[in-house]
Design a protein around this nucleic acid. Structure first.
Length: 490
RNA sequence: GCCGCCUUAGCUCAGUUGGUUAGAGCGCUAGAUUGUGGAUCUAGAGGUCCUCGGUUCGAGCCCGAGAGGUGGUACCA
């Protein structure tokens, strides 16, 4: 073997994972703080569970039981037990409640936030690691619990900075369609699932596309064929009448639903629940344009048993090439009365909502335009190695007042140091070299002021002579001057 | 998972029928300017032409396979 070039690792983040810098993180942190505050005012307590769960605690809901590693990131512990990174915050909550049931007040109300991981194909705005922020009420089967979750979600989006016109909460109840299908003679659970998937595509394919998927099947433009649910044509008609029952107000939609649902015990139950949700929402001050009943809302999760919610971003944001980008769902949830019973065997009704924090942050960032960049610290220029002690003393004085400051620690000259401060978006640079030291002064440059004056300067000589935004003050005054500059910059 | 398109410098992209040492703009580093951000001029650094294999005297360019990206579609706890 000849001597090879040493093989170096390629520096790259795994696909579907992203590095995020201060600007992006600041947006997320603001959202989390705002939403957490809303949850706490409603009486929810914070809970944190670990990133890993035993796979069997999550596994029942994997899409394909034959491939337990599909969909989640799984690994085997040294005792051979399979563990998996959590894919949402609901399954870990169900495990926690089942495990700690005796010591918890019931109903138990908790909120939680943190990253979740999904091992699937990433896409634009779709990552394999992202943040969720959930609130759940466990141990109450009152529809008012659902209503409160919805009201909280609406309030949370507002607190996060979304204008009311930018999103809508859509509400449905699984029991309606289930009851309708049973009444129409569709009992097979595989068929019911196929119907749900078809209905989910209403906004994209329209009524005729959905009708095809409910019946024999549908061929799309690329020629790919999707097998249909294969239900009878009378049943197709009632399903279509059902999904198009949405009206202007929640009450009007309820009236219309009562007509098309055709009387089944389960359907009537669903209607009664929605009616009580409407009452409660009205009392909680959630208007008809903020939260609507929409029978076409499905949600993918099989574990939902009753009411389901979905928050949709209606805000249109221009993409990189000017075309509008639709972000779609920015959160969702629903009632899952059987999830805890998987562990305990005892029914434990529950309902919750999950905020898609990363999606929402991306949407806000894309639409915000004038999103402010993170400001850097005051930079103390390091002009003379013998004065480093002085520089650190200056930085210390600023820090003691709560002003972010740093001494330049690179080895470049003054020009590069100014560029450094500029790139960090520093409010000010502090210059103390031999001249200032001898005169007992400090030179301070207001970088924002200099930036705004720079446009008017045309030739280099003026630029250098004027030194825009720069002042030299006695040593005794420097701290007050810098602090004033920092305050106006912020 | 399936189908289409794409992959050349940090970024956006040129690159002639297959022919010497692969280019530009922006960005970056530095000088012009003893100690000053912008503008201007100058210089410099930076490349596995996605990877592997094949055809050829010769491949960034042609052929095959794979990877990654992207747009649909399916799935989405």
């Amino acid at each position: 073997m000849t001597t090879d070039v040493p093989s170096r690792p390629k520096a790259r983040a795994p696909r579907g994972f992203q590095d995020r810098r201060a600007d992006a993180l600041a947006v997320e942190r603001k959202i989390l703080a705002a939403v957490s505050r809303v949850y706490e005012t409603y009486g929810f307590e914070l809970l944190e569970t670990g990133a890993l769960e035993y796979a069997d605690a999550l596994g029942k809901f994997l899409p394909d039981a034959d491939r337990p590693n599909e969909g989640v990131f799984a690994l085997q512990d040294d005792d051979d037990q399979w563990m998996a990174l959590r894919y949402d915050l609901t399954a870990p909550l169900a495990r926690f409640v089942a495990e700690q049931s005796d010591s918890l007040p019931k109903p138990f109300r908790r909120y939680a936030f943190g990253p979740v991981w999904r091992n699937e194909k990433p896409g634009p705005g779709r990552y394999r690691e992202f943040l969720q922020c959930d609130a759940d009420t466990i141990g109450s089967d009152r529809p008012e619990a659902d209503a409160e979750i919805i009201a909280m979600a609406v309030e949370g989006y507002g607190a996060a900075g979304l204008p009311p016109s930018a999103f809508t909460l859509r509400i449905n109840n699984r029991k309606l369609l289930n009851g309708l299908l049973t009444a129409a003679g569709v009992g097979d659970s595989g068929q019911k699932l196929a119907v749900l998937r078809a209905v989910d595509k209403l906004d994209r394919l329209g009524a005729t596309g959905v009708a095809a998927l409910l019946g024999a099947g549908r061929k799309d433009e690329s020629g790919a064929f999707t097998k249909g649910a294969g239900i009878a044509s009378a049943a197709i008609d009632s399903v279509l009448a059902f999904v198009e029952a949405a009206r202007e107000t929640r009450i009007a939609t309820l009236d219309r639903l009562a007509q098309v649902i055709g009387g089944s015990i389960e359907g009537d139950e669903g209607l009664a629940e929605l009616s009580r949700i409407d009452d409660a929402l009205t009392r909680l001050g959630v208007a008809d344009d903020r939260a609507v009943f929409d029978p076409s809302i499905v949600r993918g999760l099989e574990y939902y048993t009753g009411a389901v919610f979905e928050a949709e971003l209606s805000l249109q944001t221009p993409g990189d090439h000017g075309e509008p980008v639709r972000f779609g769902s920015i959160g969702g949830g629903g009632r899952y009365d059987d999830l805890v019973a998987r562990f305990t065997g005892q029914r434990m009704p529950a309902t919750g909502f999950s905020f898609g924090v990363s999606r929402l942050a991306a949407a806000l960032a894309a639409s915000g335009g004038g999103l402010e960049k993170a400001r850097g610290p005051v930079v103390i220029l390091a002009l003379d190695g013998a004065l480093m002690g002085e520089y650190f003393a200056l930085a210390g004085e600023l820090r003691a007042c709560g002003v972010a400051a740093e001494v330049y620690l690179g080895s470049s000259g003054m020009r590069a140091q100014m560029k450094y401060a500029d790139r960090r978006l520093s409010p000010a640079a502090v210059i103390m070299g031999g001249d200032e030291m001898a005169a007992g002064t400090v030179t301070i440059k207001d970088l924002d002021l200099g930036r705004s004056l720079a446009g008017a300067v045309t030739d280099n000589q003026t630029w250098r002579d004027d030194r825009p935004g720069q002042i030299t003050v006695p040593r005794a005054e420097w701290l007050a001057r810098v602090r004033r500059i920092v305050e106006t910059a912020a």
